[in-house]
């Protein structure tokens, strides 16, 4: 049985959370499979990051070369393709992230290997690896079973599990880069930072967030008044920023910001996992939504099933009164 190879993801010199989260998932799977967890880093000047991964008590393989200074799906695919041939891992797992989804499908096609994307839990029993994933707005789960293969490819959803505590016994080993020269078709031009707005919602104590339920920007004053009454900042879901009601730099979710206020009031937000991933750090969550089935209620501490426009004016008024 080969190893469980976990590709640790990093960007701009920082390891991404999903890298640590996979350190919680992979060992359990390794136990079931009778395999070992091995982390893999691809990049340039990786010593510091390699040590951080090793702190989870695993062997860390590092492909360290200036060629990999910036993420490049094409180069990643070439390196991973070679490493699969060399190492014959039982599983290759990456985050289901903008990086992972950019090369894993191509790798699967190239190597003729099975892939399950966006897994939220894994199990190996009776010689069969099974991955559970969500579909239909998160209202159904699918169990996907892998047919026997040399290597199983997986992308694992970020924010599904907590990262484990560090443990001893890790080590770092450098590998020769299988890629000797830049043959990649893709040219990295640079990063464009998100527009910097007047408010950094990642630092906000209280956030009032709106989604599709806002209906139109004309309704914003209602929300602004509530926000003013409790000294909150205003944020939005992807729907609210795609519609242009809320500035993009105030989007909460995987493609926006991860926030950690002490109070998060979600109004007219259904609560797709991409959004929840961005606000699960909130201490207390209040959700107001018309649809009693809205997934946002699953992560709420206080819930109101009603039209936000019926509740908010009175809420603002009462809060002003109580706070004098």
């Amino acid at each position: 049985m080969g190893n469980i190879l976990v590709l640790a993801e990093h960007r701009q010199g920082v390891l991404r959370d999903v890298s640590f989260e996979m350190m919680a998932v992979a060992p359990k799977l390794a136990d079931q499979m009778g395999a070992e967890v091995v982390a893999l880093l691809i990049g340039s000047e990786m010593d510091g990051l390699a040590q951080k991964m090793a702190a989870y008590g695993v062997k860390v393989l590092v492909v360290d070369d200036p060629l990999f200074k910036d993420f490049n799906a094409d180069k990643y695919q070439k390196v991973l393709s070679a490493l699969i041939d060399d190492l014959k891992p039982a599983v290759l797992m990456t985050g289901h992230t903008a990086q992972g989804v950019d090369f894993m499908p191509a790798l699967a096609v190239e190597k003729k290997l099975p892939l399950v994307a966006d897994a939220v839990s894994l199990e190996f029993a009776g010689g069969v690896l099974k991955a559970t994933r969500q579909l239909y707005s998160g209202k159904a789960n699918a169990v996907m079973a892998f047919k026997p293969a040399e290597t199983y490819l997986l992308t694992f959803r970020e924010g599904t599990v907590e990262a484990p505590d560090a443990s001893a016994g890790g080590s770092v080993e450098k590998l020769d880069s299988p890629l000797k020269e830049d043959l990649s078709y893709r040219k990295f031009v640079g990063y464009v930072e998100a527009e910097v707005g007047d408010v950094d919602i990642t630092q906000s104590e209280i956030l009032v967030a709106v989604g599709r339920g806002l209906k139109e920007d004309k309704n914003l004053p209602l929300i602004e008044e509530l926000a003013k009454a409790i000294k909150a900042d205003i944020a939005g879901s992807r729907a609210a920023t795609d519609a242009g009601w809320i500035p993009h730099d105030r989007q909460v979710g995987t493609s926006g910001k991860a926030v950690k206020p002490k109070l998060y009031i979600a109004m007219g937000i259904s609560g797709a996992f991409q959004h929840v991933a961005g606000m699960k750090g909130a201490k207390t969550v209040v959700a107001i939504n018309k649809d009693p089935e809205a997934p946002i209620f699953a992560v709420a501490d206080y819930a109101i099933v009603d039209d936000m426009f019926k509740v908010v004016p009175k809420l603002t008024e009462k809060l002003k009164e109580l706070k004098g």
Binding site: P114, L135, V143, K147
Partner: peptide, 25 residues
Amino acid sequence: SLVVLEQLYIPQVESSAEFIEGEPD
């Protein structure tokens, strides 16, 4: 296909939220 769709099921959604009842006001 190298994978099998073995089963679909509806997950139990557990909400620990306190649902506030009454008229909107």
